[in-house]
Write a protein that binds this DNA or RNA. Structure first.
Length: 261
DNA sequence: CATAATGTTTAAGA
DNA sequence: GTCTTAAACATTAT
């Protein structure tokens, strides 16, 4: 479930590996891991990850000044930090073994996403044209950003070049909480509505982070769990509607989220 | 067995 | 240049 809150949890997991030196990196999913096992071992063996940085949906493991690994989790990624003698998790595509006998497993069921070498977070963000992290964009920048856009609000929220970290399900959640129809265009939003989106963007992401991105721990007022069970609005209990926006399934409540004209 | 899945990139057309 | 849509990637869970 790797959107910003999930990757924030991975960041906390990855922090645990900072204390030990890297012993050996094992590559199991070629194509998912963009560098060869040899190259990775040459670069990282004997070093340790000094800095762990999340930006949007990306996680950076920084060893030396100009040597980092950047992880992207696609749609089905996960990160496990286990003892060496524990059973290897299914779909582990790359494991980083540490000298203290712990292993960081990078998993990906569908092999979307990637593990690759990069210089550092800053240069990667620039090269890949990532926008500011969703938790760090200022209200002012958010408002002026929306003014330049001509797309549907949901599309704008999920465009990683504009704002990094919001994906399909949290975009739905933010718009549900803000009571705004996902198909409204940014130009159709009143000042009040833009404000509400900004406020809910923060509230939703922070709440999800506090819940450790565990769907079962989200408040009952959240839409997210209803995607898979019931498909009823937690507020009015009416049936949710779904449509495709930018090729992705979008859920919303037709009575709580006002339709665009 | 068929369908959909929390993401991104690329190509083509408006 | 902006926006939209569809397809591709690889694989499983329902």
């Amino acid at each position: 479930m790797p959107e910003l809150p999930d990757v924030e949890r991975y960041r906390k997991t990855a922090k645990k590996c900072k204390i030990s030196d890297i012993d050996r990196i094992v590559v199991k999913g070629t194509r998912f891991v963009k560098s060869s096992e040899n190259e990775l071992n040459n670069k990282f063996k004997g070093k340790n990850f000094k800095k762990i940085i999340r930006h949007g949906k990306y996680l950076f493991l920084q060893a030396d000044k100009s040597i980092s690994l950047v992880l992207h989790f696609g749609m089905t990624g996960d990160l496990h930090f286990l003892k060496k003698d524990e059973e290897e998790p299914k779909y582990s595509r790359c494991s980083i073994n540490f000298k203290n006998n712990y292993v960081l497993h990078i998993l990906s069921r569908r092999k979307l996403g990637s593990v690759e070498l990069t210089k550092d977070a800053g240069s990667f963000i620039k090269e890949n044209d990532l926008g500011p992290d969703a938790l760090k964009i200022s209200r002012k920048d958010f408002i002026s950003l929306l003014k330049t856009k001509k797309s549907m609000i949901k599309t704008a929220l999920t465009n990683q070049s504009d704002i990094a970290g919001i994906g399909n399900v949290y975009a739905d959640e933010i718009l549900y909480q803000a009571k705004i129809h996902p198909q409204k265009s940014t130009g159709q939003l009143s000042e009040k509505e833009t404000d509400a989106v900004y406020n809910e963007l923060h509230k939703v992401l922070k709440t999800a982070i506090e819940a450790n991105a565990d769907v079962s721990k989200l408040p009952e007022t959240f839409l997210l769990p209803s995607r898979s069970k019931g498909r009823h609005c937690p507020g009015c209990k009416g049936k949710l509607e779904s449509t495709k926006i930018a090729g992705r399934t979008t859920f919303y409540c037709p009575s709580c989220q006002k339709s665009p004209e």
